[in-house]
Write a protein that binds this DNA or RNA. Structure first.
Lengths: 166, 166
DNA sequence: CGGGATCCACCTGGATACTG
DNA sequence: CAGTATCCAGGTGGATCCCG
């Protein structure tokens, strides 16, 4: 896929262009579990060091990960999630839910738990206002105030709403 | 990445192996918006036909999409989401939320709206029981009843919980 | 309209070795 | 420990043409 091609059209496409890579998603998952050192990622993911290095620096430059040098000589670093990185964890949580439902033939092997109580958390997506579970069959993605000219063209051709009403 | 490598370890990794591809995610997004014909995807995504064909059949074989022949001669088909495919829309919704927050430099151009009222929906992830927003900093991913031997090894080495408590 | 078949350039990951 | 450097194979996407 040619990067930066449709990045002006849709925040979903932009987000996918930024983090929609297998390795990046798995690294973010591990960061969310508290892994911090280059070596830990490499051992856990069985990823080639060069690839890991590139993925980490991409995540850093995209603002999802912060690299902290905790020692100068020799240089040692740890990686932690930024706010933007933490904000991505709900996506991973819903991926987990989908995987548990539709891609776990031998049973449940991944759960979200409270660190201190170890109680299980079951994430669901609701509307912020009503707290009602969202029925996706009744919804659609629309444009917004900042529609680009190209997006307005696409939406109009497809007879889709240009923005939400109040 | 070698496919089917760590697929026995974690439902997140399995899910990502199944649908964590740029094109597949964008196709699912379009399906969620009601696009149905090969041609529509191709025009909207500017994707090479061969690639689109492969992605669609992968999605079909993975059970997220159903291919319906609505005409025999010449053969014509439409593509629609299955239950598993619809269940993936919450993931896309949270990707949209992240993109709107962290990857929309020129403003809001993608929103989730009710098809009939055009009112805006704001998706958030909450715990199914308490309906409280999830604080991801307090959580971690744990194992589950169906942990494989390999996963038990990893969790133990990292001193992580093997499963949730009740 | 709904794709299948080809061809090719390139990119990317894997493996391995090495270094401060 | 924390990467960088190198090399290589092959997979993948884009482009194009074609067909019922």
């Amino acid at each position: 896929m040619k990067k930066n091609d449709r990045t002006d059209l849709c925040s979903i496409a932009r987000a996918i262009d930024k983090i929609g890579d297998h390795w990046s998603l798995l690294i973010l998952r591990d960061l969310g579990q508290g892994l911090t050192y280059f070596d830990e990622f490499q051992k856990n993911l069985l990823i080639a060091p060069g690839v890991l290095s590139k993925r980490l620096s991409t995540l850093v430059s995209e603002g999802l990960v912060r690299k902290e040098l905790y020692q100068d000589n020799p240089p040692r670093a740890r990686y932690v999630l930024t706010k933007a990185g933490e904000d991505f964890l709900p996506v991973l949580a819903m991926i987990m839910v989908w995987g548990n439902e539709h891609s776990s033939p031998s049973g449940l092997d991944t759960q979200l738990v409270d660190k201190s109580t170890l109680k299980k958390i079951s994430p669901i997506v609701v509307d912020a206002k009503t707290k009602e579970p969202i029925e996706f069959s009744k919804l659609t993605f629309a444009g917004g105030p900042a529609n680009s000219a190209a997006k307005i063209k696409v939406l109009t051709e497809r007879n889709m709403p240009l923005a939400a009403v109040n």
